[in-house]
Amino acid sequence: MNGVDLTLRTLHDDERDLEQDLLAAAERHRVEHEFHHVATDVARWSREHTTRLAALGRDRGLDLSGPREHPSPGALAALREKASQALGRRPQAGLLLLHDLRDLHLAAVRSSLHWEMLAQAAQATRDRDLLELVTACHPQTLRQMRWTNTMIKVLSPQLLVNA
């Protein structure tokens, strides 16, 4: 397995984790409607990325598992929703949201760096399939980064001062 294959595998895992982290944060902060809906929407991008990375991996002889299946709503989902409602708009919930945004931002940055590494390798080796994948997916990861960064900038002053 060469470096490109290892980076594909790492990026696949990173994107899968980012999707799950976005969905979990969206559930934790369900009462923050804008955050909940945007996080759910941008999680779909990471799910699409894992699907496309797995397809490219198969073409290269790599066995990358497909995207994780969403668990069916059950006791854990109900518990998360009740916890979200109980926290509501208390200061602790705001600090938790900032913590989650920080972690989501760092996860998106990590994925972005791997996309950039793959873009450089694709250009150097003239790998059109890889370059096409990076060109399609990396801008969405950059938008995930910008969204988390903007949310941190908007929320930090009020939440940190009033905590």
Score class of each variant (00 low, 15 high):
E132F: 04
H70N: 03
L96G: 09
D59H: 13
A78F: 03
E32W: 15
V109W: 08
A93H: 03
Q120V: 11
L64K: 12
R126V: 07
S111F: 01
H70R: 14
L96Q: 11
V109M: 06
A93I: 02
G57R: 06
K82G: 05
W115D: 06
L113V: 05
D129V: 05
H99P: 01
A39S: 13
S112V: 00
L130H: 10
L131D: 13
R68T: 14
E34Y: 14
H37A: 07
E69N: 09
R47D: 03
W115F: 14
S84K: 13
S72D: 06
E116I: 03
L130K: 06
E132M: 07
R80G: 07
R44N: 07
T125Y: 03
W45L: 11
A78N: 10
V109G: 00
L76N: 02
L96C: 02
G61M: 03
E81F: 13
A122T: 01
V134S: 01
R44H: 11
A122D: 00
L95A: 04
D41F: 02
A108G: 02
S84C: 13
S112K: 01
A77D: 10
H114A: 09
L118I: 07
L133D: 08
L56M: 05
H36Y: 06
E34P: 00
Q92A: 15
A86H: 09
L64E: 07
H33D: 13
R126P: 00
L113K: 08
A119Q: 13
R60P: 10
A83E: 15
L98D: 04
L133V: 07
R68P: 01
H105R: 15
D63G: 12
L104F: 12
H36K: 08
L64Q: 05
G61H: 04
A107D: 04
L113D: 10
A43Y: 12
S72R: 14
D103C: 09
T51V: 05
P73G: 03
G88A: 07
E116A: 11
H105V: 01
T51I: 03
T51G: 02
A43H: 09
L133I: 08
G88E: 04
G88M: 07
